[in-house]
Design a protein around this nucleic acid. Sequence first.
RNA 1: GGCGGUGUAGCUCAGCGGUUAGAGCACACGGUUCAUAACCGUGGUGUCCAGGGUUCGAAUCCCUGCACCGCCA
Length: 623
Amino acid sequence: MAKNKFYITTPIYYSNSEPHIGTAYCTVVADTFARYYRLRDYDVFFLTGLDEHGPKLARSAEERGYTPKEFVDMMAEKFIKTWERIGITNDDFIRTTQERHEIVVQRVFQKLYEKGYLYKGSYAGWYCTPCETYWGEDELKEGKCPNCERPVEWLEEETYYFKLSLFSEPLLKYIEEHPEFVFPESRRNEVISFIKQGLKDISATRSTVKWGVLVPFDPKHTVYVWFDALINYISALGYLREDNERFDRYWPADIHLIGKDILRFHAVIWPAILMALDLPLPKTILAHGFWTIKGGKISKSKGNRVDPHELMDLYGVDALRYFLLREVPLGLDGEYSESSFHRRYQSDLANDLGNLLNRVITVTEKYTEGKVPEPSLHGERERELLDIIENSIKKVESSMENLNPASALTSIWEIVQSANRYIDQSAPWNLEKMGKRDLLNTVIYTLLETLRKLSILLYPFIPDTAEKIQEQLGYKDKQFAWDLLWNAKIPVGQRVQKGKVLFPKVDIKEEKEETSLVNINDFQKLDLRVAKVLSARKIENSDKLLLLEIDLGFEKRQIVAGIAQFYSPEELIGKKIIVIANLEPAKIKGYLSYGMLLAGKDEKGNLSILTVDKDLSPGAKVS
RNA sequence: GGCGGUGUAGCUCAGCGGUUAGAGCACACGGUUCAUAACCGUGGUGUCCAGGGUUCGAAUCCCUGCACCGCCA
């Protein structure tokens, strides 16, 4: 019997910036669905990847002194490492610079051209040459490029248009007939009202951008990045290629998980392309919300970016996953703060779940020699707990069906809470003295069995924890499958294995009011690092500035330093200097500086850069 | 300017026509000692944004206004 299939995707993230809480969020949610459906015995295909084309990327690479290829390879490494650490179980990782992808983009383009959906025209607008980007009249900042503030020029460019206008009617009809096509409903309404205004043909190629996929029938053009990017969902499956078994098996996608910012590409343009190709449309475009800090957007320029690695260092992988999944219903914006994260960790994970496991294992060791006892009685309390568990499982299933992992977690915590209540009411620590051996055995057995079920239920959300629970329950081979909720029991006689506390308490210092004194937290905001100077040269038209390329161990960067009057470029090369690695990038004399080196200066005007007393590797933290 | 959404306990939110309006967190008191100063129980708090209307009955439906947010122009 063929299994049901489930195909879920994340967007391919623009590899211009490193993984942050937003991309981590999206990927964790997708992973949770993927894991859940695997437990339900679906044949799951989970795709994520990177968007590696486009002018911005080429420019970022150049600014840092890399070729685009070197740069995207380096970034890809970071994404892959981060996802590994978060326990992401993607089945493939697509990169738009891969040949397998580029070929499909070209074939799709050729096909659309032959079917008459692409035509040559021209595009005009205010063009910024360094940024390789067109801007609308209203987007300009005082008549200049809003991105780099350099002058723009009115330019007309040859381009191929995609006949999006043909699809207003069919799209509208489709969306109206398929209420589940866009989620949540408010986003669906947005899409409908957008389409109702009428769709215009859109430019699908560029002749000024080099870093992209060549248009097969007119190679002075490259395919516009958005078009290139959308194709990933089918190129990864081998569409229009010889090895297209995956495509036959998994398309159409069950869920395209996306951020609300790219809703239109996915709910309008992408389905139009698919219709043009005579392909079935994905079942659901699921737009999640954004994380905010103090009600505002998280952005690099505000410098309030949240590094998932820092949270994992402090609290662990599952704390991050749990917070992201639990704090906010999928589809809405969520407010991130250290204190809300800490609260979730402390009360839900440490106090409720972690402590439950800990106390149950201790009781087992104390009263039944660490072995799963044989249950005998089955009383009112056991019945009650079982009812709650059964009920919660059903709620988890319907919550997942309704795309709401947050409410699934709420239901799972009903079990945690009931188990805590059960152990309190049954008070196994009194039963031995009272000579109620049978009841004692039943109570302990019931608790261990409840934890076994919990481990399965938790697996899609916090897989590490789920595994640790089974380890402590004494399982050598982990058992994760949904039907084991009903068709298995913890084996009598199995030896439990007390392990480390699941979620150790984490101390954080309360946020202090601003004072003139800085506290240790303030200091710790500075990411001071040892860096090795790789190259140095004078910046033209400046007698103070040097442009340095430095090795930070984890990456190479350029920084601008105002020390040309004190150091020659030659004497700096090879020196180990101290830099602030997380300083907001600044543009100095047209050069972007990604950090600042530390130097001391006395009243006489002598300047000396800071260096290390003994040899340290680049990237070493200074504190 | 157009379309849509939101406004409920100190905080985050659920309820969306029907008994004294709910949950979690926080707070207070009590219990308990197996446990990560944890867990369990009990408790209080609310002009359900404002005003008007429909209804036997409205946080819930309709209208107006205010505030915030989203999409579009």
